[in-house]
Design a protein around this nucleic acid. Structure first.
Length: 310
DNA sequence: AAATCGGGCAACCGCGCGCAG
DNA sequence: CCTGCGCGCGGTTGCCCGATT
């Protein structure tokens, strides 16, 4: 038995909102505030579902919303957070003043994911597409492309770090009272420092333990160790994250969250991302640069292309 | 000039969670 | 403890409009 509808669907208007409806909703919310959305349509004199009213208000009518284009800083912020927590749009939006989850989601779907793809970065895993394809190829042909025996293999390290990262992120979400997000000062572009992309760790330390068995989900930001139990309830509890990240990120930055990397080890990544007018000025470029470095460092890694899969 | 295509965005839908009774 | 309701989230749909053929 399903849940009953929140309103009489036969008698509610759907589709685009008119200026008159906007005015009524705005007039109501400005005098009464927002409370029980189910009752808002009736009280405001609207033939709309309460849900529709809430959506219209939060995405369009709410005060202090920004309607201008996303800035490069905001772009980087979204990409960085998406790499870390996946499509938790509300969390990402909460860290961008004046932006809604719908804004961020739409912007990602229409612009950023394409931009990343065109730059050779897989928008799901945030790793170079060639690397992702190699991982897929290994899964489907476990014998054909053996993992290099060296414990410092790029992919092995990546899988290990990724798993560790998601475990740590999960713990952080569970234990931190005010989970943080990367914080940047919009008043000064040069003060914005980007966390290390979690799926592209810096060169590995010399000593490394036994390689982990890897599965496809280990390469997903969203799926893996994050866990469904954490994903919804715990994260939702912390939706008021916007301005509360200092305690976690201050001082040592992201890298001091009991995590993976030594402080400052990401400097190769960040050097081009935070500069002013450097030649390679984007996050994506930084990732690609790093991938090239990895390729030169580990020439034994085979490169595969799409023809390997067909 | 008309038809088609594709991108962008607003809005809808279904589901899970939290909370109050 | 159980149940029902409201809220919020992420995924998806559909419309609008500009570009292209």
């Amino acid at each position: 038995m399903g849940r009953p509808p929140c309103c009489d669907k036969a008698n509610v208007k759907k589709g685009p909102w008119t200026a008159d409806e906007d005015a009524k909703l705005l007039a109501y919310t400005s005098t009464h505030g927002i409370g029980n959305w189910t009752s808002v349509p009736q009280k405001a004199g609207l033939k709309r579902c309460g849900k529709s009213c809430r959506l219209r208000y939060t995405n369009y009518l709410r005060p202090n919303l920004k309607h201008e284009n996303f800035t490069p800083e905001e772009e980087e912020h979204i990409v960085t957070l998406h790499a870390m927590i996946g499509s938790r749009w509300s969390i990402i939006a909460n860290s961008l003043p004046g932006r809604t989850d719908n804004d961020v989601k739409n912007y990602w779907n229409t612009k950023l994911s394409k931009k990343l793809s065109q730059s050779g970065i897989d928008p799901v895993t945030h790793r170079p597409i060639s690397d992702v394809m190699l991982s897929i190829h290994r899964l489907s042909h476990p014998q054909s492309v053996p993992l290099p025996s060296s414990p410092s293999s790029s992919s092995t390290i990546t899988a290990t770090k990724t798993t560790t990262f998601n475990r740590e992120l999960k713990n952080a979400f569970l234990t931190k009272p005010n989970i943080g997000v990367p914080h940047y000062n919009t008043s000064s572009a040069s003060s914005f420092t980007m966390p290390t992309p979690p799926l592209l760790p810096p060169p590995p330390p010399p000593a490394q333990t036994t390689p982990l068995e890897t599965t496809w989900t280990d390469f997903l930001v969203d799926g893996c160790d994050f866990g469904e139990n954490v994903a919804s309830s715990e994260v939702k509890k912390e939706n008021n994250v916007a301005a509360t990240c200092e305690s976690w990120t201050s001082g040592h930055g992201w890298y001091d969250c009991g995590m993976l990397y030594e402080e400052g080890s990401c400097s190769n990544f960040l050097a081009s991302g935070s500069g002013e007018g450097e030649g390679s000025s984007s996050f994506v470029d930084a990732i690609l640069d790093h991938d090239k470095e990895m390729a030169s460092e580990f020439p034994q890694l085979p490169i595969c292309d799409s023809s390997d899969f067909f």
